Simulated scan of single mutants.
Amino acid sequence: MIERFEDKTEWGDRIGWIYGSVTEDVVTGYRMHNRGWRSVYCITKRDAFRGTAPINLTDRLHQVLRWATGSVEIFYSRNNPILASPRLKFLQRIAYFNVGVYPFTSIFLVVYCFIPAFCLFTGQFIVQNLNVFFLSYLLLITVTLVLISLLEVKWSGIALEELWRNEQFWLIGGTSAHFAAVIQGLLKVIAGVEISFTLTSKSAAEDEDDIYADLYVVKWTSLFILPLTIMVVNIMALVIGISRTIYSVIPQWNRLFGGVFFSFWVLSHLYPFAKGLMGRKGRVSTIIYIWSGLIAITVSLLWITLQNNVEGGGNFTI
Results as ranks from 00 to 15, higher is better:
D210Q: 08
F97E: 02
N131W: 06
P86H: 05
H269V: 09
A159T: 15
R38W: 06
T142D: 12
T52M: 08
H178V: 03
R50C: 07
L256I: 05
F224R: 01
C113D: 08
G185F: 05
T44G: 08
K202R: 10
W17D: 11
T58F: 04
Y76F: 13
D59Q: 14
E73I: 04
V218N: 03
K188D: 07
G36D: 04
I126G: 03
S176Q: 03
E10M: 07
I107F: 02
S285W: 07
S201E: 14
M32C: 05
P103T: 05
F262G: 05
G20F: 09
I246E: 05
L145T: 11
E3T: 14
G276L: 03
R50P: 01
G51A: 06
N254D: 15
A177S: 12
F224P: 01
G16K: 01
T52H: 06
M32N: 06
Y137R: 08
V72Y: 02
R165C: 03
P272T: 03
L61E: 01
L199S: 12
I148G: 05
K188S: 13
G157N: 10
L150G: 13
F264Q: 14
G157V: 08
Q307C: 02
D13H: 09
A181K: 03
I94P: 00
F125Y: 04
L150A: 14
S263F: 02
D25E: 12
W37T: 10
G192K: 09
L215Y: 14
F97L: 08
A117M: 00
T52K: 12
R244W: 03
L277R: 02
Y41A: 08
L138E: 12
Q184A: 15
W253F: 15
S77I: 08
I250M: 06
P81A: 01
P272E: 05
T23G: 04
T144N: 10
S149C: 10
F224L: 04
A181M: 05
F5S: 10
V110R: 02
L223H: 01
R255H: 14
F104R: 00
A68P: 02
A180D: 12
R38E: 11
T221P: 03
F5G: 06
C119S: 11
I246V: 15
W17C: 02
L302S: 10
F134C: 06
S292T: 14
Y289C: 05
G174W: 00
A159C: 10
A117Y: 00
G100D: 01
Y137S: 08
L147N: 09
V249N: 09
D207T: 06
A213E: 06
S243K: 11
F97D: 00
A177V: 04
S136V: 04
I126T: 05
H62Q: 14
L57V: 04
A48N: 04
N98Y: 00
I297F: 11
G279Y: 05
L163H: 07
T44D: 10
S243V: 12
I107H: 00
I195L: 10
Y289H: 14
W303K: 09
G123P: 01
R4K: 15
V233D: 00
W155H: 07
L151K: 12
E208N: 07
W291Y: 15
V182F: 01
E161G: 15
R255T: 14
I43H: 06
P116G: 03
V218G: 02
I235L: 09
S222E: 13
R31W: 02
